[in-house]
Design a protein around this nucleic acid. Structure first.
Length: 471
RNA sequence: GCCCCCAUCGUCUAGUGGCCUAGGACGCCGGCCUCUCACGCCGGAAACAGGGGUUCGAGUCCCCUUGGGGGCGCCA
């Protein structure tokens, strides 16, 4: 029996959880779920200078919002530094690592020279076989891994295929800094091994690391986990998506009014596919997900498609669930607090309006905006276009008020019947009546069908709003 | 500079030698519906980067070119 699948998402807490990281987390999560396994969360915080608690909080918040859960605690890699050091020393004792006394300046010089001479830029192995007696007294050494020099290191990747690196192109990486702290490549190997990680799914920018890490696995006699390096996500212009270039934190997507389930669906389709399927539930995603269906080429992030998908999700959600989502979104919206409060108090009215509001919103922001007329304070101040309409055709409202006043059964069909009859009697087009009505009731020229607006608003409020505009 | 990877409509992709006159989705254009805006429905334009091979037969396999991306830290 093969061991249970264990994946891990291992972000470094140097900033928010950006879209690429979110997709990596999603793929790890999907793969674990699809195989009845677990996803671990490990914060790669060995660089104390750059790590921050705020970033950790932002990452956890982002994962939670996306609905991606993990098994156990959120591990801190830094907390395991002693263990990493222990392995480094083991490697040192076994002759698989050695002390290097080059100063940072010397190393910089080395790189510069190599680049100038057109050679590959790497550590030249100065201290690889040098006698410890030559060690300068004023330099605290780092510990370097003694990498193989003349063979090949193969990364058998589930997505990239069999990638072969010549050992002469990979240098002896530092595994312990001069202050004795372990570095990334060592820590990752030790942690993945200790935590029983069976599948490493991460961005292809780690592919070279996979080769170097494989060498460490071999030196320790450990089994290399299954590797799967996914292509990166590019910005709309095809350039690499980075924090200073188009990449946003997932919290920004939340603030833009996207639903987590739509986000998951969209992200899953970036790089992964299941035939012609475009819209699928998270359950289906889990059922269908597999590494073999992930492509090798990078994808561009396309807001238009995300937005379309988000609209689709909004439309097919039940009114109750959508209302919940809307209320959860409110704190991140720009709706004034008292309007937020009013909207929550009028949940029933909101849910009645949702069926006709849904079709008109692609994001929760649009939904909030379109629902705003429900909580608008009288007298409503019409916007520019609505003001014009009221000036040009507002006089039809006077006669209409009386007709509406007669309605006892205040429902969409009854209202529709009365208004249509009224229009016919007065030999005017429905539009000539509907637009001024809309302007008076919502203060705008865009809204759901006018009969629905009247119905949802209620007789008293509707008539009051119309009369407000007659004065 | 060196190493590695990638390449189908504008974008995401299906396609694993004949089923491709290259399919779907978003976007775009046109139409229908219509009280506004949407939704929905119908239709349309739109791609195998270029060049060589291999083969009876290449989007699919190989090579080169071009273009793009990633890596080359006492960062992760």
């Amino acid at each position: 029996m093969s061991p249970p699948v264990i994946t891990r998402f291992a972000p470094s807490p140097t900033g928010f959880l950006h879209i690429g990281g979110a997709r990596t987390a999603l793929f790890n999560w999907l793969f674990a779920k699809a195989n009845g396994g677990d996803m671990l969360l490990r914060i790669e915080d060995t660089d104390r200078e750059r790590s921050s608690d705020d970033a950790v909080a932002a990452i956890l918040d982002g994962l939670n919002w996306l609905g991606l859960d993990w098994t156990g605690e959120a591990y801190s890699q830094y907390a395991r530094a002693d263990r990493h050091r222990e392995i480094a020393l083991e490697l040192l004792d076994a002759g698989q690592a050695y002390r290097c006394y080059c100063s940072p300046q010397e190393l910089a010089q080395m790189r510069e020279t190599a680049r100038a001479e057109g050679r590959s830029v790497r550590y030249d192995g100065t201290w690889r076989d040098r006698d410890a007696g030559d060690a300068p007294k004023d330099i605290t050494p780092v510990v370097r891994f003694r990498a193989p020099q003349h063979g090949e290191t193969v990364v058998d990747d589930q997505i990239q295929g069999r990638v072969i690196y010549k050992d002469r192109d990979l240098d002896d990486l530092i595994i312990l800094r001069s202050d004795g702290s372990p570095t990334y490549n060592l820590s990752v190997v030790v942690d993945d091994h200790d935590m029983g990680v069976t599948h490493v799914i991460r961005g292809v920018d780690h592919l070279t690391n996979a080769a170097r890490q494989s060498q460490i696995y071999s030196a320790m006699g450990w089994t290399v986990p299954v590797m799967a390096h996914i292509p990166l996500i590019h910005g709309p212009d095809g350039a690499k998506l980075s924090k200073r270039h188009g990449a946003l934190g997932v919290d920004a997507y939340r603030a833009m009014g996207y639903l987590p389930e739509a986000m998951r669906n969209y992200l899953a389709r970036l790089g992964w596919s299941h035939g012609d399927e475009e819209v699928f539930s998270t359950e289906q995603m889990i059922e269908w997900f597999g590494l073999e269906a992930i492509g090798k080429s990078p994808a561009r992030f396309d807001f238009a498609k995300l937005e379309n998908l988000n609209g689709l999700y909004i439309r097919k959600m039940s009114d109750e669930i959508l209302a919940n989502a809307l209320f959860e979104f409110l704190p991140y919206s720009e709706l004034p607090d008292d309007d937020q409060h009013k909207l929550k108090q009028r949940r029933q009215q909101l849910e009645r309006a949702l069926p006709v509001l849904k079709a008109r919103a692609k994001t929760l922001i649009e939904l909030v905006n379109s629902a705003h007329f429900l909580v608008a304070t009288r007298p409503i101040v019409p916007d520019e276009k609505a003001t014009l309409i009221l000036q040009d055709g507002g006089e039809v409202l006077g006669a209409l008020v009386d007709a509406l006043e007669e309605i006892d059964d205040w429902t969409t069909p009854s209202i529709e019947a009365v208004i249509k009859a009224h229009a016919e009697t007065n030999q005017t087009k429905l539009g000539k009546v509907a637009q001024p009505l809309r302007a008076a009731l919502t203060g705008t020229t865009v809204s759901p069908g006018i009969f629905d607006v009247l119905a949802v608003l209620g007789k008293v409020e509707s008539l009051d709003r119309i009369r407000d505009q007659l004065k």
